Simulated scan of single mutants.
Amino acid sequence: MSGTRAERAPDDLFLRIVAGEVPAEIVHADDLVVAFRDVNPQAPLHVLVIPRERYETVADLAAAAPATLARLVAVAQQIADAESGGEFRLVFNSGAGVGQSVFHVHGHVLGGRDFTWPPG
């Protein structure tokens, strides 16, 4: 499905969250993106920001809907401003080999503690 948008994929957990079928702690919602707390946080601030429409990877989203990707990044900044003094790490995993487990692009907004480099 890479490179294409699926209007509805019944096994897509994130589309089910967007539809209100699966509970989530929503911290932001607008016409393009939804942000919610990660159920297994890796930092004091760990929020996922997703597009309402399904794209598998961040590259797919950038190619098909750059305005939505820009909105996703802007929302990440707004959340970090409100919850971690404006500092944050924004992580996209693209592919199972690097940790993507839900194939609906999502940015991990991480903050609220010091991070090391390199990650992982």
Rank of each mutant, 00 (worst) to 15 (best):
A6P: 02
V33F: 02
H108G: 12
H28S: 07
A67M: 01
Q77T: 03
R52S: 03
D31G: 07
L72W: 00
G86Y: 02
V91K: 04
T4Y: 13
G112T: 11
G97Y: 00
D38L: 12
E53T: 11
E7Y: 01
I79P: 01
E87R: 15
L90P: 03
V34C: 12
A63Y: 01
V18L: 04
G20M: 10
R89N: 14
H104G: 09
L72Y: 00
P10W: 02
M1G: 14
L110V: 13
A76E: 05
V47Y: 08
T116D: 10
F115C: 11
L72M: 15
R71E: 01
R5F: 03
L32Q: 15
V22R: 11
L72T: 13
E83M: 07
I26D: 05
H106Y: 07
V109Q: 06
A63L: 11
V105T: 15
P51D: 03
L72A: 15
A67Y: 01
L110A: 08
E83T: 14
G111L: 07
V102A: 09
A96Q: 15
E21T: 05
L69M: 07
V73H: 09
L15C: 12
A70L: 02
R54S: 08
A64F: 00
T68N: 01
E56A: 12
A70H: 00
V47A: 09
E87D: 14
L110T: 13
V105R: 11
V27H: 03
D81H: 00
G111T: 11
V75Q: 04
D30N: 12
F115G: 13
P44F: 04
V91G: 04
N40C: 05
R113I: 05
A9M: 08
F92A: 12
A9C: 14
G3W: 03
V49K: 09
P23N: 04
F92W: 15
A80V: 02
I79L: 14
F115L: 09
L13W: 11
P10Y: 03
P10M: 04
P23T: 07
V91L: 15
A64P: 05
L48T: 11
A29W: 00
I79E: 08
L90R: 05
E56L: 06
G99H: 06
V47L: 08
T116Q: 10
E7H: 09
I50N: 04
F14Q: 10
T116P: 02
V109S: 11
W117C: 03
P118Q: 06
D81Q: 03
L32H: 10
A35L: 02
A6L: 15
R8I: 12
P23Q: 05
V34D: 05
L32S: 13
G99Q: 09
H106Q: 11
Q78Y: 01
